[in-house]
């Protein structure tokens, strides 16, 4: 699979603070990529750098082999972007918003846009400011999809939606992705809601990429080890240790290897995996695993 997004030593500094640094990513085309991390981890910064809404302080971005995403109209036309809280012009009618899309985007697909709006049961004459949050998100998504982008980037697309609207939004999104085969990168601070939809994972915390890879492969490489609480093993591949009264749970990157005697291994869930890396980022322990992880 070729890469849709490549970043090299990408960094963004706000005065003296780095919001994101040393970000090296290679994300495959055609995948649904989840960007996960706590609030303030640098997710929005990364996404804005990818679409050229911000200029990097260090490093570079290229989309489909083309550098400088925000630099030219052709590059912009390749990417559909829905920002956090799905901003749209609230005084516009839905039809006028589609007119905007049509007049600003060379590859605009009016049929697609109108069909989607119709399927959602949103009247074209309605002012977008009067729509519910879920409907606004859907309109913003329709606007991004009707550009016929190769890459769709969504920043916290479901954060402001109620559970029902969330489910609907993701369903609509996934149906389209399957139909069109486009690359999707979406961020969230809640991995559980993305678990069903994503096949690639990027974990960001504290302005750094903590983990990136294919979901299946990552789940295959990691195990939860359970064993006696005393005399913890320490070695490469240890991600996080959770000590209970008598037992310790260890998330480790050991693949299919046999655990130490006296320890039991079980497969890991996606949420558990993400949490382990986020905790590790919060209290980093000086163990060799850091070297291991940076491969």
């Amino acid at each position: 699979m070729s890469a849709a997004i490549v970043t090299r030593e990408l960094g963004k500094r706000y005065r003296s603070r780095w919001a994101l640094r040393d970000c090296d990513l290679e994300l495959p085309a055609g995948a649904v990529i989840a960007l996960v991390g706590p609030n303030g981890a640098g997710k929005t910064t990364l996404l804005q750098l990818l679409v050229g809404l911000q200029q990097p302080s260090a490093g570079s971005v290229s989309l489909f082999g083309r550098p400088e995403p925000g630099g030219s109209a052709q590059a912009l036309a390749q990417v559909g972007y829905v920002a956090q809280d799905h901003p749209i012009y609230r005084r516009f009618r839905v039809s006028e918003l589609l007119h905007l899309g049509r007049s600003l985007n060379p590859g605009w697909d009016q049929d697609l846009a109108e069909r989607r709006i119709e399927e959602l049961g949103i009247p074209l004459r309605q002012r977008t400011g009067r729509l519910s949050g879920g409907q606004q998100a859907q309109v913003a998504l329709a606007l991004a999809l009707a550009k016929r982008p190769k890459l769709l980037i969504l920043d916290e697309p479901v954060a402001s939606l109620d559970p029902l609207a969330r489910r609907e939004f993701l369903q609509v999104l996934m149906a389209t992705v399957v139909d069109e085969g486009l690359t999707v990168l979406l961020s969230s601070h809640n991995v559980a809601e993305l678990e069903r939809v994503c096949d690639h994972l990027v974990v960001v915390a504290d302005g750094r990429v903590q983990l990136a890879g294919d979901v299946e492969a990552l789940l295959g490489e990691h195990r939860v080890l359970t064993g006696p609480s005393g005399g913890l093993p320490d070695g490469p591949g240890m991600i996080h240790v959770d000590r209970a009264d008598r037992h310790a749970h260890i998330v480790a990157r050991i693949g299919d290897a046999e655990p130490m005697p006296g320890w039991a291994a079980r497969p890991i869930g996606l949420e558990e995996l993400v949490l382990a890396y986020l905790r590790q980022a919060r209290d980093p322990r000086p163990v060799p695993s850091e070297l291991e992880l940076s491969k």
């Binding site: 804005q48 679409v51 050229g52 809404l53 925000g70 630099g71 030219s72 109209a73 052709q74 912009l76 036309a77 990417v79 559909g80 972007y81 920002a83 956090q84 809280d85 901003p87 749209i88 012009y89 609230r90 905007l100 899309g101 600003l104 985007n105 060379p106 590859g107 913003a140 606007l143 550009k147």
Partner: peptide
């Protein structure tokens, strides 16, 4: 209103 992000990601520089 955050719409600069909408405007700057259309196919227009």
């Amino acid at each position: 209103q955050g719409t600069w992000q909408l405007a700057w990601t259309q196919g227009v520089t």
